[in-house]
Design a protein around this nucleic acid. Structure first.
Length: 911
RNA sequence: GCCCGCUUAGCUCAGUUGGCUAGAGCACUACCUUGACAUGGUAGGGGUCAGAGGUUCGAGUCCUCUAGCGGGUACCA
């Protein structure tokens, strides 16, 4: 054995950085790298991570899937672009810098807007975008030269263009509406940024006295503090209890303001007391009631969540503190008639966590109905596909029910709304996207215009991502080459936020869908099934899994040795089944690490052996066929074709686990366990057989590396480069990379349909003898004499052809094959189909174990035989089942019956 | 309330259009440090496919209902 500088175990850390740099340095990630003539383009626009973000396991999964698709398509010769970039994450990023200011004892409100924005840019340049570096560690083959940021000048221009286009199409309007207000963030939010949670609360029953002193009416509310803003009490017009009261006035407690009792269908006689207080300024339903009855909007809670001056001595108090204090007072004064505990749904700000305050404010909106109609039409017309398909319904349901989208945010970091308000005529000027900022009103000409202070929702710019990154609104070469994109890979959480909005804007502005397929993967959970999150301490850091370190997980410290990116990727692929959620634990990544090590060692074996007998050139299918291939070689090459087909079909069908498994099973079960072991014999004997084995092994292993590459790019690239030294080449030759080699196609000339069944029988014979050896307590290394009794001479002759294979793989000291092969004196007989396998043993034979096994097998077979006999005895089965099916059952039955007969004979012989 | 998903070996999960004796990994048992690999090998043990009905020649797979778990969505009277 020549010295070899490959260590016994694969150490990912010593290769991954180097391999990545070589790829990037050689331009392998660039759009169009490896493109072969005539092949169409394949584009994925990355879901842009937040500039504030760090890589978590969900990103690792998301990007592993994208990279697997991208590398696979690139190897297929497609003109591939994986477009990377980040979004500016308006609220999150602003919060980061606001916190920094606080640490310095300053407040955002006291900082000039320009200065604040400058600070955010400085922060972004210095510490933003960590995640992009981390994506490289994962192996992501994005075209980094095309990295984009939503606040780039080009993308900002796209935003401005879209805004103007939508204003002109009457799809964007400004209006005073009830919106979701976050008192903590002090901005409006869209409906999608509200997290509705079930909360324990109380239904407080309040007594409102009639103004004329003739009695009172009871109302129930979960939010007594809003009573200051009540403008009416509503009752259902059909409600007999209150019919007489409609039109009379009640006098609010404490403040004494008088409000009418109105009739409105909104009041449900079955709910509460049937009479409901109406606070149009602080409740969406009440807002609608208020509009119907012309009730005044009385704002009693301010933008900061504190009670306004209209709230008597509660003015200035926080809304929740006010509730507490108010109830005390109500109780004392007899206004509070009772309380029931209830569970009710309360909207919370997704980002800051506090309960949303419905607030009537002036905001910008996108009119969704016309956009949504077109977006729905795409799936209905089968032009846009979700995988798994069930997400189509979720997408369509949202679009069918969507309300107008509030796009203005009262923050500073983002795209400032390109609209100017005129102080003279109060009209709004929205300039053309490429025009300079207006200095005069487009309506009255006055020079009294000021830009709207608000910025756009971050998702407004994200909605343009698939084309703004390619240069839209300009007709760039990239637009014509890579748009529409092909696939979007994301999770279910942003189907509404992002996927639907991209479809809407793209159809509106470009009359094209932005992508044809949307793959929705599962959510990454911890091993208990809970979603991973920082606050729960159950997150697993992909970078720690790749590079090693201490992982704090579920209250324990897990010492991770560093499994490498390939291991992390492979494990995630292996677990990705049809969009089901993943349950992960740190040790789960051993799956991938172990497999990577196995690949490494197979490569090591090949390199050791082939360095002794190098090939002149990488062998082709024709080179292999030119030689006299033995049966195991033909079988292996046939299996390779099947594996190639399986892997391709799996990726084609978005079945990532089938891809990972298909490659794994061929590699381990067929290539390593059977062929490599067989080839060792050939290598030992040398000569022509060794040369054939070398060719076959080189070919099969090299194809396997190609198949594995999209999932495990680093180790496969490294081994592939090393492999070149054994076929007349050098590693890292300019421009030669595995990642740009062709994805294997099925080579029909190497397929051999008969090989499978033949090998199957041989393997069973070998396993039967190994089993006997194990069962009888004979060491694996002990060669045993075997004789096989066949039912007829033809079978005996057929088996003779595989004598060498059987002897070698079964470790036989001798092999006799004959129709009447007799059982030697001290021997154990097992049964393979209609074959009896006599294994000679020295000394005691454990008959009990043998009998147990044979009896168990008989029972198994009898059950199966009875089932088949029942089926074949059924006239309906014969008449209705497909003929081929019936034939197969008959053949199977005959086989099983033959085996039972043979086992019975054997058992009888044991006495 | 409505919608969706899940329930298969001790654990985590596969099981394409209904059709061989229901599979894999981990864990477990026994044996093996043999010249690619103990991050390994060999051979095993382990499942009335959540429950009940139905369709069918045939159901883990299709339909209905029930139970449990998870997700989404609606509702702050």
């Amino acid at each position: 054995m020549p010295p070899l500088d490959l260590p016994k175990s694969y150490d990912a850390k010593s290769h991954e950085v180097d391999v990545y740099q070589r790829w990037e340095g050689a331009g392998c990630f660039k759009a169009g790298a490896g493109h072969r003539d005539g092949k169409p383009s394949y584009t994925i626009a990355i879901p842009p991570p937040n500039v504030t973000g760090v890589l978590h396991m969900g990103h690792a999964l998301n990007n592993t899937l994208q990279d697997t698709l991208i590398r696979w398509r690139r190897m297929q010769g497609r003109d591939v672009l994986w477009q990377p970039g980040m979004d500016h994450a308006g609220i999150a990023t602003e919060a980061v810098v606001a916190k920094q200011l606080e640490a310095e004892g300053k407040r955002k409100e006291q900082t000039p807007r320009d200065e604040f924005i400058a600070r955010i840019w400085a922060w972004k340049e210095q510490s933003g975008g960590t995640i992009v570096k981390q994506l490289r560690k994962l192996g992501s083959s994005c075209d980094w030269s095309r990295e984009r940021f939503t606040m780039d000048p080009g993308l900002s221009r796209a935003v401005r263009t879209m805004f103007k286009k939508m204003v002109d199409a009457d799809l964007i309007y400004r209006g005073t509406r009830m919106v979701n207000w976050s008192p903590v963030l002090k901005t409006a939010l869209s409906d999608d940024e509200v997290d509705v949670k079930d909360k324990q609360g109380h239904l407080w029953k309040l007594r409102y006295d009639l103004a004329d002193g003739s009695g009172s009416i009871a109302v129930e509310t979960t939010r007594p503090e809003t009573f200051f803003g009540d403008s009416a009490v509503a009752v259902n017009p059909s409600d007999e209890r209150y019919r007489a009261l409609i039109g009379s006035m009640v006098k609010l407690p404490i403040i004494g303001r008088e409000i009418p009792i109105v009739a409105d269908e909104h009041a449900d006689p079955g709910k509460g007391t049937g009479a409901v207080k109406i606070t149009p300024a602080h409740d969406p339903n009440d807002y609608e009631v208020g509009k119907r009855h012309g009730l005044p909007l009385i704002r009693v809670i301010g933008l900061d969540g504190a009670m306004t001056a209209l709230c008597a001595h509660f003015a200035g108090m926080d809304r929740f503190a006010c509730r507490k204090a108010l109830l005390k007072e109500f109780e004392a004064s007899g206004v509070l008639l009772g309380a029931t505990e209830i569970t009710h749904a309360v909207g919370h700000s997704e980002r800051s966590g506090e309960p949303i305050e419905p607030m009537v404010t002036e905001q910008w909106f996108v009119r969704m109905a016309p956009l949504a109609a077109r977006a729905v039409a795409e799936t209905r017309a089968d032009r846009l596909h979700f995988h798994p398909e069930r997400w189509t319904k979720v997408y369509e349901h949202w679009l069918d029910n969507v309300r107008d989208w509030c796009i203005s945010r009262q923050i500073w970091w983002g795209h400032r709304i390109p609209a100017w308000h005129c102080a003279s005529c109060a009209k709004i000027t929205v300039p053309d996207a490429d025009a300079p900022d207006p200095t005069a009103c487009a309506h009255c000409g006055a020079a009294t215009v000021t830009q709207d202070p608000d910025v756009l929702d971050t998702w407004f710019s994200s909605a343009l991502w698939p084309y703004s990154t390619l240069g839209w609104p300009d007709a760039t070469p990239e637009m014509s080459r890579y748009f529409p994109t092909a696939t979007l890979v994301t999770d279910r959480g942003i189907i509404f936020f992002w996927v639907a909005r991209m479809v809407m804007t793209s159809l509106f502005a470009l009359d094209k869908r932005p992508f044809s397929d949307v793959y929705i993967h599962g959510t990454v959970n911890d091993e208990r099934g809970d979603k991973m999150s920082k606050s729960k301490g159950n997150g697993i850091d992909p970078i720690i899994m790749i590079e090693g370190g201490v992982q704090h997980y579920l209250g324990k410290d897990y010492q991770c040795p560093g499994y490498g990116a390939d291991a992390v990727r492979y494990t995630l692929l292996d677990m990705t089944t049809e969009g089901q959620d993943l349950k992960l634990s740190p040790s789960r990544f051993e799956t991938g690490r172990n497999f990577a090590n196995k690949v490494w060692n197979a490569g090591r074996f090949l390199l050791m052996n082939l360095s002794e007998r190098p090939l002149a050139n990488p062998p082709t299918a024709q080179d292999l066929l030119a030689r006299e291939l033995g049966f195991p070689e033909r079988w292996l090459l046939d299996r390779l074709q099947a594996a190639t087909n399986d892997c391709t079909r799996a990726l084609d069908g978005w079945r990532f686990n089938d891809y990972a498994n298909g490659a794994y099973r061929f590699f381990r079960d067929d290539l390593c366990d059977w062929y490599v072991e067989w080839a060792k014999r050939a290598f030992k004997s040398g000569g022509d057989g060794a040369q054939t084995a070398a060719l076959v092994l080189w070919y099969a292993f090299e194809r396997t590396l190609r198949l594995l590459h999209p999932g495990m790019p680093f180790i496969t690239e490294y081994l592939w480069q090393q492999l070149q030294t054994t076929a007349g080449g050098q590693p890292w030759t300019a421009g030669r990379f595995l990642m740009l080699q062709a994805w294997p196609e099925v080579e029909q000339v190497l397929a051999d349909a008969s090989a499978g069944a033949r090998m199957d029988e041989l393997q069973q014979l070998v396993i039967a003898v190994r089993n006997t050896r194990n069962q009888q307590g004979v060491a694996d290394g002990t060669a045993l004499a075997v004789s096989i009794a066949t039912p007829d001479a033809a079978k005996a002759r057929a088996l003779e052809a595989d004598r060498d294979f059987l002897i070698d793989r079964g470790n036989f000291s001798a092999l006799a094959i004959a129709v009447d092969a007799a059982k030697p004196a001290a021997a154990v007989t097992s049964v393979v189909g209609a074959l009896k396998v006599h294994v000679s043993l020295e000394g005691q034979v454990d008959l009990a174990k043998l009998k147990d096994q044979l009896t168990k097998r008989t029972q198994q077979l009898e059950k199966s035989i009875a089932g088949k006999q029942g089926r074949l005895g059924n006239a309906d089965y014969i008449a209705r089942a497909p003929a081929a099916q019936v034939e197969e059952t008959k053949a199977m039955l005959a086989k099983e019956q033959a085996e039972v007969v043979t086992i019975r004979e054997t058992l009888a012989g044991l006495g």
